[in-house]
Structure formats: structure tokens, C-alpha cells
């Protein structure tokens, strides 16, 4: 038992060990994918396994979190090499590239509009409204207003501040 405790303490303190653990789950997931023959990548099985273990209490978030964060924070580095595939497609620098960017742009606008409408309709239809987020927003606005009043800032100035904050977030 002391060995187990020492191992667990090491795991919670060491990012490297946690990265290893994430890889371990991935390897197990790959094994499951191969055994079942399902056309699903091992990463999905690994993810499912981690979620089941977290839910069952067999795995503590602290044993995995730092390792997982390492993978997610720098994920961009992992797919940059694939992006260089454009070297194989010089056509993309011409008319074809313009067409593809146009397709992506129009399609993205449609995707975003549909997503927004479905969520807004869904929230209107569902009996449990989005009280938590709307009341959170309302509370935040109320707190902002109270703070502004205390500081002697007018309501109009406050609106300007919040718009500015909003625009900064959005670029």
C-alpha cells in the first residue's frame, strides 16, 4: 500500500508522468479499437475510458489534468506539420484557393447562423430556460452598474465601457 500511495503522490506532482498516463489511455483505446474492429479511432475509446473512470471514482482529476492540459495547450504544434501539405498543392495558390476560401466563408456563416437559431429556439421551447446564464449575465450587469454608480460613472459611459469590452473580446 505505501508503494501505491507513493506512486499516486508522484503522479499528482509530475506532469511527465501524467503525459505518460494520457498516452497509456490512448494505447489501451487503440487496443480496444483493434479488438472490437469498430471503425472508431483509439483516442475516442481512450476518452470514453477516462470519462467512465472519472465518473466511477477510479481516477482522480488531479492525476491527469496537468498532462491533459499539456496536450491541449500546444495542440497546434502537432498539426502544423500537416498544414505544410499545401506544398503539394500549388494550385491552391490560384483560383482554386479563392474558391475554397469562398466555400469555407459562406459555409461558416450558414453553420453559425443555424447553430445560433437552434440554440435560441431550443432555449425558448425548453421548460428549464437558460435562467442560470441569463441571471448570471443580469447579475454581472447589475454588479457593474452598482460599481459604476459607486465610482460616479454615468450609465451612458458604462454602456460605452461594456461595448468596448465586448468589441475587444471580438476584435
Amino acid at each position: 500500500m505505501p508503494l501505491f500511495v507513493a506512486l499516486r503522490r508522484h503522479l499528482r506532482a509530475s506532469r511527465l508522468a501524467q503525459i505518460g498516463l494520457v498516452m497509456g489511455f490512448w494505447l489501451v483505446g487503440n487496443g480496444v479499437a483493434r479488438l472490437t474492429g469498430w471503425p472508431v479511432p483509439g483516442g475516442i475509446f481512450g476518452m470514453g475510458l477516462v470519462l467512465i473512470l472519472l465518473a466511477a471514482g477510479g481516477l482522480n482529476l488531479r492525476s491527469l489534468r496537468r498532462g491533459a492540459d499539456w496536450f491541449l495547450a500546444d495542440m497546434l504544434l502537432f498539426f502544423i506539420p500537416a498544414v505544410l501539405a499545401v506544398l503539394n498543392y500549388p494550385d491552391l495558390a490560384g483560383m482554386l484557393g479563392v474558391k475554397i476560401v469562398a466555400i469555407i466563408g459562406v459555409s461558416t456563416v450558414l453553420v453559425m447562423a443555424v447553430t445560433a437559431l437552434v440554440i435560441e429556439w431550443g432555449l425558448k421551447l425548453s421548460p428549464i430556460r437558460d435562467e442560470r446564464s441569463s441571471s448570471l449575465g443580469a447579475r454581472r450587469r447589475a454588479a457593474d452598474a452598482a460599481g459604476a454608480r459607486a465610482n460616479g460613472v454615468s450609465a451612458r459611459r458604462l454602456r460605452a465601457i461594456s461595448t468596448e469590452r465586448y468589441n475587444n473580446g471580438m476584435d
Binding site: 498516452m23 470519462l51 495542440m75 502537432f78
Partner: peptide, 21 residues
């Protein structure tokens, strides 16, 4: 450099954490 791309596999497992949270 394909070893870097291969790390996208375990990165998929790491997505379990935001889902759980």
C-alpha cells in the same frame, strides 16, 4: 515530423477533461 502529428491521437484522449469539467 510525422511524430508530432501522431501526438494528435493522445490529444484526443485529453479532451475528456473539458467534457468532465
Amino acid at each position: 515530423t510525422h511524430w508530432l502529428v501522431a501526438l494528435l491521437g493522445p490529444a484526443m484522449v485529453a479532451f475528456a477533461i473539458p467534457v468532465w469539467e
